[in-house]
Design a protein around this nucleic acid. Structure first.
Lengths: 174, 174, 174, 174
DNA sequence: TTTT
DNA sequence: TTTT
C-alpha cells in the first residue's frame, strides 16, 4: 500500500494501576485502561452531558513498560501515541472474538505523563511524584510483538525516583 | 475530566465501496472498511513482511456521508480523522459483544480523498473522478454523541439497531 | 490540491498570560506563547540536556478566545490543535519579514486545559480554577481564512494590522 | 516540563525537487518545500476560494534523506510527521532573523510517499514510479542535529527502484 | 474503572 | 517567557 498511516492520540486518565505481565523470554508487556471523556451542553434541555470512552492500551516497548510500571498509577493523566490493532481470539465456546487495542510498540509510539491525580505515593501536586527530570516524551524503540507469556507482576511498592533514560538513542534532542 | 483527547488518524484504502444506510428520520450513516498496512524487512531472514490492519469507520456527519457516497469507492485512498468508540451489542445468544469503531462526527472529524485506485466510475488517475474543487478537508460541526434510538440497520440481526440524532450543523462542508 | 492536511499538535506551557486584542468590529484575537521542551541524556557525557522551543499561537475562534481569556494564565499547561500559517510583514526598513504561527481558527482547532501551574487567581490545584463543566475540547466550526482588513493591533507598527472575518459558528463550544 | 508534545502533520505536495546537502562529516540533510492548500466557498459571493500555505521541511534523519533523494520529486504528495523548530540567524546587515521549520529527526518522525504528480521518471499513475513495496512509513532514528556543512548534492538521475529498508529496527511490524 |  |  502506497503510504499508510495508523495513529491514535489519547489524553486521558488511568482507570486502574497498569498491569504488567512478562513474556516467557522476559520481555515486559503493560496494559493500561484509559478513560477519555467529552462534555457538552444539550441544545434543548440545556443540561450538561458527559460521555466516557474506555480504551485498552498495550505497551510492548520495554522502555515505556518501565515508565508505566514505575510512574503510572490509577488516576494518572497520560498522553499516548500508538496505533490501532484488532486482535482475534476465541472465547470459551470457541467462537471468534475481536478486541481492538491501542498498541505502543516501535517508533512513533509515545507515552508521556501529564500529571493528574494518581494514588498512593503521597503525591502532593497531583501525580508527578517523581524526582529529577529527563522523563519527557519517552520515545520507543521497536520490540518484539510477543503477546504470549505469563508471569504475573504485582506492582512494586517502589517509589518512583526520577531520572532514567530511553532505551535507545539517548543522546539526541529529538 | 480536565482535558481529554481521543483522536485517530488513518491513511489507508477502502476494502469495499462505502455502505450507506439511512435513519428513520432520513439522516445518512456511512460505513467504511479501511486497510492500513505496514511493511518491513525481517532482520534475520531478510524477507519482506507485510501486515494489514482493518478498521471500521462510521460517519455520522451528513456532509462527510455525501462525500463518501459520491466520491469514495473500493480502493480509494483516504485520510480520515475521527475518534475511537466502542459499542456494545448482543449476539444471537444474548452475549455481550463489543466493537470498536472510528467515528466521524462533530468537529475535529475529517475525511479527505487522497486518490488511489478506485474502481468503476471510469476514474482514470485514481479516484479523483469528481468535478470542481472545494472538496478538501470536509470539516464537521459539533454534534451530540447520542446513539440511542430507532431505525433498523442492515448490519445483521445482532448489530445494534441504528437511530441517533445530531444536534447541529450536519451538512456544512465548510 | 486533492487532499491536503496542515495540523499542529502541541502540549506545552504558557510563558506569559494570553494577550487579548480586539478587532474594530469587536471580534477577539488571542495570542499565546507556548513552550515545549525536550530532555535527553547525552550519550557521551551522560549529562542531562534540555532544549526548549517557543511557539506563537493565534486564536481567531471566538469561543476559544474566551477560554484563553478566562482560564489561561502564565504557566498553564495546554493541549492545542491548530494549523501552521506563515505571515508576511514589513519591518521598519521596509524589508519583508515572515512569521510562522499556529493558528486556531475554524473546525479542527482545539484548545484544552491540562492543568499546570498557572499564576494568580488562587488556583488551588494548578490552574483549573474555573467553575462548572462543559469546557473540554472547544471545537470550532469552519471559517474563512481571510486575514486582510482593518482593525489596528497592538503588536508593533510593522505587525500586520488585524481585522478579519469569520464565517460561522464562532462561539459554539460543542 | 511534565510532558511536552511538539508535533506537525502535513499532507501536501513538493513545490520543487528536494535539496540535499551534506554536513562536513558526511551526514545528509534534505530540504523540502511543501504546499498545503485549503479551499472553501465564500458564504456571501458563493465563489470558490483557495489558500496555499508553504512549509519548509528539514530532514536530518539519514534514512529519510535517502528516501527524499531517491523517490521524491517536485509535485509528489507526501505525508510527513515532524516537529516545529524556529532557527535564529543573521541577515546581511547583522539583524536577527527567525525561520520556522518542520524538522524530521529522531523517533516520531515520518515521511511517507502518497503518490501525486511528480516530474520526470516517466511516472505513469502519478509518482509511485517505484517497484515493489516496503517503503511505507519510514520511521526515523535519531541523528545528529548538525546544521552546518556544505557540500552540494545534485539529485542523481537514479531511477528509483523500490525495495529498501529503514535504517533501524527493520524486523518489527511496528 | 478514571477525571471534571 | 513556561515547565521539570
Amino acid at each position: 500500500m502506497a503510504g499508510s498511516v495508523n495513529k491514535v492520540i489519547l489524553i486521558g486518565n488511568l482507570g486502574a494501576d497498569p498491569e504488567i505481565r512478562r513474556t516467557q523470554d522476559g520481555r515486559p508487556i503493560a496494559n493500561l485502561r484509559i478513560a477519555t471523556s467529552e462534555t457538552w451542553r444539550d441544545r434543548n434541555s440545556g443540561e450538561r452531558k458527559e460521555k466516557t470512552e474506555w480504551h485498552s492500551v498495550v505497551i510492548f516497548n520495554e522502555g515505556l513498560c518501565k515508565v508505566a510500571e514505575q510512574y503510572l498509577k490509577k488516576g494518572a493523566t497520560v498522553y499516548i501515541e500508538g496505533q490501532l490493532q484488532t486482535r482475534k481470539w476465541q472465547d470459551q465456546t470457541g467462537n471468534d472474538r475481536y478486541s481492538t487495542e491501542i498498541v505502543l510498540q516501535g517508533f512513533n509510539s509515545t507515552l508521556t505523563m501529564l500529571g493528574g491525580r494518581g494514588e498512593g505515593g503521597g503525591a502532593s501536586r497531583g501525580g508527578n511524584d517523581f524526582g529529577g527530570g529527563g522523563y519527557d516524551d519517552y520515545g520507543s524503540a521497536p520490540s518484539a510483538p510477543s503477546r504470549s507469556g505469563g508471569a504475573s507482576s504485582g506492582r512494586g511498592a517502589s517509589a518512583p525516583s526520577g531520572g532514567f533514560s530511553r532505551d535507545l538513542d539517548d543522546d539526541i534532542p529529538f
